[in-house]
Amino acid sequence: MRDFILMMIGAALVNNVILARFLGLCSFMGVTTRIDTAAGMGLATTFVITVSSMADWAVQHWLLDAYGLGYLRTVTFILVIASAVQFTELTIKKVSPELFQMLGIYLPLITTNCAVLGVALLLVEGHMSFIAATLFAFASSVGYSLVMVIFAGLRERLALAQVPRLFAGPPLGFIVASLLAMAFMGFSGIATN
């Protein structure tokens, strides 16, 4: 249990998907203008990363490894992720059309989010058991959501601040992102993974 907790802290905070591994940067800059949209995107991405990682683990162990098809890993994972997103979209639409109308916009964007594929490939490198792989994927995506919401909060405040025109908008956003990354470096040493 202690190992799982340390692994999850490491995945969420120390080796954060966005700030340490530099994955999912497009959504990090693109969907963080408001806290609510960032939280919605974060939750949708958390769901897709966790579900697709479960499927990727099964495909890797019971198909690719079993039949010596490791060289097809990347293309297979992309297919699995795209299928997971479509499955999620169809399921949410069936479960509640109202929820789909409200949240459906996030799902197609996740298909091209490199964090989803990145986490799946990290699982393979880690040679983890199924439960460890799923918890790692979940913790990584929680770390992703956490940074998205924090950054959205900072950008909401920055939008109200008076800054030189040269720095307004994305330039100041990048500076703040780098400061946030440095702040997260403070977690180094808590746990490793």
Binding site: T37, A39, L43, A44, L99
Partner: peptide, 10 residues
């Protein structure tokens, strides 16, 4: 919006 996201995904 957040409640809907928590319901659908969380």
């Amino acid at each position: 919006l957040i409640r809907a996201a928590l319901t659908a995904y969380g």
